[in-house]
């Protein structure tokens, strides 16, 4: 086994969600998917709503990421600063699905209303859809 590992921390303004030594990390950035392996060049990049897939000893762990910033430091330290993040196993699928339904409904209701900020609604839908998808991935394991 290669000795080198990434020290990954996923943190939100409220708490640190995940901290561990991992083999690799895949995230969704504004420019597409990005995989970070040990000895990656120092990098700072904004993240989109999406997943963070962590691979450790052949096991895959998924996290839902609600946008944020990825920071890779030169000493193999990786930090994800996210507004909100959850481990796939922590997401309650049923509740996530109802939240998604609710988000879609408010979009439907907003159709005749000009005042409403569509971007916010769309973001809500994207966020909940992401959570549902990742929760399902977590359950398959």
């Amino acid at each position: 086994m290669s000795a080198k590992k990434l020290h990954l921390t996923i943190t939100t303004p409220l708490r640190t969600v995940y901290e561990n030594d991992v083999d690799q990390l895949t995230v969704t950035t504004s420019a597409g998917e990005l995989t970070v392996l040990p000895d990656h060049v120092p990098l700072v990049v904004p993240l989109m709503i999406g997943q963070a897939m962590v691979k450790n000893d052949k096991k895959e762990i998924y996290h839902a990421i609600d946008g944020g910033i990825l920071e890779v430091r030169h000493n193999n330290e990786v930090v994800i600063l996210s507004d909100r993040s959850e481990n796939a196993t922590e997401i309650d699928i049923e509740r996530a699905e109802t939240a998604l339904e609710r988000a879609k409904e408010s979009m439907e209701n907003a159709k005749d209303n000009v005042e409403i900020d569509y971007q916010v609604l769309e973001r809500n839908i994207a966020r909940e859809l992401n959570r549902v998808k990742i929760a399902q991935k977590g359950q398959r394991k």
Binding site: A31, V41, P42, L43, V44, V45, G67
Partner: peptide, 15 residues
């Protein structure tokens, strides 16, 4: 030594 993508300003806007 850091690389900022897509650029530094965009990162700051998020920070």
């Amino acid at each position: 030594l850091y690389t900022f993508e897509p650029n530094e300003q965009e990162v700051l806007d998020k920070v």
